[in-house]
């Protein structure tokens, strides 16, 4: 990969990947470290998938694996996260979304990833299943349970 291809990859996908990491970690400084690590990995690759859709899926998969590795390895972050839950979760810059954002942060990582990939990026269940190493049916069930729970929480809040 040459510098031109790398720059193009960053300009086309950097923002999406940044937000995907933020969605998973909900902490900006961790997010920045992970995004750098993702792009170091990309830079080390000799080639990238030529098909744009395949490339997007590949980038999201590499990003998620890097996130999970990072969080798994950094046990001190896990301890910090458990101890200082409120400080860890930074609110979104979107002023209209703090309540929903807080509810999303209570979900397991896999469910947050499914919602992000389906509702924000627009991937199908089958594509998400490929990216997350799950069956399509499991993705469907997880999406259903998550949305059902969110709907119930929001209804309770309104009452």
């Amino acid at each position: 990969m040459n510098e031109h291809v790398f720059r193009n990859l960053y300009h086309e996908h950097g923002r999406n990947l940044y937000n995907f990491i933020l969605w998973i970690t909900s902490n900006r400084s961790i997010c920045e470290d992970i995004l750098q690590e993702v792009f170091v990995k990309i830079w080390r690759c000799e080639t990238v998938p030529p098909d744009p859709e395949e490339l997007r899926r590949w980038l999201l998969t590499v990003t998620r694996h890097t996130c999970l590795d990072f969080l798994r390895k950094s046990s001190r972050f896990a301890r910090f996260r458990n101890k200082y839950q409120e400080e860890w979760f930074e609110p979104p810059s979107d002023p209209d979304a703090p309540f929903l954002w807080a509810e999303l942060q209570n979900l397991p990582e896999i469910e947050r990833s499914i919602l992000y990939l389906h509702l924000k990026i627009g991937h199908t269940y089958s594509e998400i299943a490929g990216m997350l190493d799950l069956t399509e049916n499991l993705v469907r069930v997880r999406a259903f349970r998550t949305l059902k729970r969110l709907r119930e929480t929001l209804i309770k809040k309104e009452i």
Binding site: Y18, N19, S93, D94
Partner: peptide
């Protein structure tokens, strides 16, 4: 509402 959460710039 989830889809409408603003993406942040890098």
């Amino acid at each position: 509402d989830i889809a409408a959460i603003d993406d942040e710039p890098v």
